[in-house]
Nucleic acid binder design. Structure first.
Lengths: 194, 194
DNA sequence: GTCTATAGAGTGATAGAC
DNA sequence: GTCTATCACTCTATAGAC
């Protein structure tokens, strides 16, 4: 499984053959097919591994979504994204070819969006963010943040540049900046110092 | 050419065979191969058509990048994106398989980013946007806007939803909102009214 | 369970007649 | 220029021996 994820990350899902995977893990293709019904089953297993890890990360930050905890989970998320880059890079290709995967991921996405929105609401509650002034402004902000997180790696690959995860983090905080209260700015400053 | 773009949009580049294209435009595959050296050449031609159209749009708004002109070009851009959805949906796959295309598109991207930044600077100059208070805040904002524009269609496809281009436009304006001066808010209100 | 060998279905691209 | 026919190759998945 780790062998196939490695190859998917390096060459892209469609460019990895069953022969490649078998060779990588030092078994025959026949043997590989014995353990996984077809290529889709291998992908499914890789995705399950990934989804489990992601849920763990989301869960950790949801307990107390203050700036400090959020900030500490952002970098691990981008490292996670690199470890499963095959998915984020080929996400359109994969969801088109495997409708079941698409459905599962859509549900995952919904939870992700809602947890971002919950983090915003929590920090409005603590007085770190201004109450919503323009209707739906925070829904749009949550949507933007989600897009930045999910498509950060793709944009990097497309532009052919290598960026530190911290640049992603700073760009996202920059979106939140204008909504910080005086108290929020202080909390933010101490949160990112650590 | 339009026939191949249609098929690429519907099924994705990798899922369209030379036979499919030949059938779509009612010629033989042999004939198709006579006119285009290989599949990459067909893609190249499709991309050139697309790039030309995009440059026209960027040029139109660059002349006077006030809110009215920007706002009027945003919706056409998202319609353009639908017309060439094969590119935006398969962008990672395509740039990986065709390094020449990747290079060309990276230059295109650079121009796109710079023109967004120029629009921001222009509106700081007219007093519609506050001068930059936090260093690089506007570079990050430009980057975010670019990502929203380029990955809007992909995020729609991944989530399996259909959205109006106006939602994309509103989400982008929502990013700019916090930086509007009093004057800028008035200009914006009259600009979007038309 | 693991292997080798191969079936079976495609694909991109070319050869050669017209 | 346009066609038909086909080459050469690749891939997934299976059959059958061990």
């Amino acid at each position: 499984m780790l062998g196939s994820i490695k190859l998917f990350n390096e060459n892209g899902f469609v460019n990895v053959t069953l022969r490649d995977i078998a060779k990588e893990v030092s078994i025959s293709t026949g043997n590989l097919s014995y353990h996984y019904k077809n290529k889709g089953a291998i992908l499914q297993a890789a995705y399950q591994r990934m989804a489990q890890e992601l849920n763990g990360m989301l869960g950790a930050v949801q307990i107390i979504p203050n700036f400090k905890n959020i900030n500490e989970q952002v970098l691990p998320f981008f490292e996670f994204q690199v470890r499963y880059s095959f998915f984020y890079v080929d996400i359109l290709e994969l969801t088109r070819a495997y409708p079941d995967l698409a459905k599962t991921y859509q549900a995952q996405t919904q939870r992700f969006l809602e947890s971002i929105k919950a983090m915003i609401d929590y920090n409005v509650g603590t007085g770190n963010l201004f109450p919503e002034r323009i209707p739906q402004a925070y829904d749009k902000l949550a949507h933007t943040i989600w897009m930045m997180m999910v498509f950060w790696l793709p944009q990097q690959k497309v532009r052919g540049i290598v960026q530190d995860g911290r640049q992603a983090r700073d760009t996202i905080w920059n979106l939140i900046g204008p909504y910080l209260t005086e108290k929020g700015r202080n909390v933010y400053r101490t949160a990112i110092k650590a």
